[in-house]
Amino acid sequence: MVWGVMVSPSLIVFAGVSVLGVVLVIMSSGLLGMWLCLELGFFGFIPILNGKSVGENESASKYFVVQSVGSGVLLVGLILVSGEFFLVGGGMMWQHMTNLMMVVGLMIKLGVFPMHFWFPSVMGSASWLSCFWLSVVQKVGPFWVLGGLGFSGWVLGSLGFMLVCTSLVGAFGGLAQVQFRPLLAYSSLGQTGWMGLVSILSSELFLYYMILYSGLLVGLLYGLNAINSYSFFSVPGWNLGKGLFFWIFGCSFFISLSGLPPLAGSALKLVGVLTIVDKYYFYVVVLIGSSMISLYYYLSVFISGVVCIGGNSFSFYDSLAGGSGLGLIIIMLVGLNWVGGFPLFMICGGLVL
C-alpha cells in the first residue's frame, strides 16, 4: 500500500509508462513527437488516478475529459506550426493564432488560470499518490514544453500574467478549505506561477526546483497518509505528544512549501526570486504576496492543530516504526526540511548566480 493505492504489477507498469512519457518529452526534439510523449504520460496516469472508490473514478473521468480537450487544442496548434504553407498564406495573424492555440492547450493541461477549475475538483477525490502525481509528474512535461517553444512578445507576457493569476487563485482559494486534499490542490496552484516562470526563463533551474519540491511533497503526503485523515478537525492534538510528532514529521512541510526560512522550502522561493526578478520584477512582488497569504493559512492550520484536544487514536511512532526503510526515508526528509534549509539556500543561490 502506497499512499492509499495498492502496489501491484499493473501499478508499476502504468507508473513506469507515465514517467517514461515525461523523460521522452525532455529528450524530444520534434513537435509531434513531443505531443505523443505528453499523451503517453497522460494515458499512463489515468489507471493510477482511477481507484476503487466512486470519487476516484469521478476524478479520473473529469481528468480524462479535460486532458483530451487540452491535447486536441495543442495538437491543432502544433499541426498549424508544422505546416509552413499556412504561415506563408496567413502571415503574422496565423502565427499569433497558432502560438495562442499551443499556449491555451498547455494551460488547459496544467490547470493555469482561467482553466484551473478542474484541478481542485480532481485532486479533492484522488488518492495521496495521485495527488503527488498531479502536482509533480504531470506538470514536468507541459512546463518543459512551455520553456522550450520559445514564445516571445505579447504571448509570453500574457502567459506570465496568467501564471501569476494562478498563484493568486491558489493563495486565496486555500483560505476557505478545511479538507487536506483540496488544500493541496490550491497549494499546487500557488506553486504553479513559480514553476511556470522559472521553466520559461531557465529549464535547468526548473528541474532543480521540481526535484526539491517533490522531496518536500513526499514528506508532507506521508505525514497526511500516516494519520489516515482528510480533514483538519480529525488531526491529532497536542495530547500525549502525538500532535507534536505529527506537526514535526508531517505538516511542517506545509509551512516549508510557503517559503518560511530557515526551512528547506525557502530555497525554492530563492530560486524563483533570483530567476524571475531581472525580467519580471512586478510579478515577483505579487508571487511573494501570494506566498505570504499561503503562509497565513498554513500557520492557522498549525495553531488549530496545536490547541485542539485531538480525539484521533493515531500514533506516529507506530507509523514510522512499521514503515522500516520508508520511515528512515521520511526521517531523512524531515531532517532535510528542518536542518538543510541554509545549505540548500546557499547552493540554490550559487546555482542561480
Rank of each mutant, 00 (worst) to 15 (best):
W3H: 04
L20G: 14
G21V: 00
L24M: 14
V25A: 08
L31N: 08
G33P: 06
F43A: 07
N50S: 13
E56D: 04
Q67L: 08
V76F: 08
E84Q: 15
W94N: 09
M101W: 00
G105R: 07
I108F: 12
L110I: 11
V112D: 01
S125P: 06
S125I: 13
L129G: 07
F132Y: 14
W133P: 04
V136K: 01
V145G: 08
G150E: 10
F151T: 03
G153R: 05
L159Y: 14
T166G: 03
A171R: 07
G173R: 06
L175Q: 12
A176F: 15
R181F: 03
M195E: 09
V198M: 05
Y209M: 14
I211R: 03
L212T: 02
L221W: 04
Y222P: 00
L224M: 07
S229W: 03
N239Y: 13
K242F: 12
F246V: 03
S256T: 09
G259E: 10
L260Y: 14
P261G: 08
P262N: 01
L263K: 08
L274D: 11
T275G: 03
V286H: 04
S291F: 07
S304A: 13
C308I: 11
I309W: 10
G310L: 08
F314W: 10
Y317L: 15
S319P: 04
G323H: 10
S324G: 08
I331H: 02
W338H: 10
L353T: 00
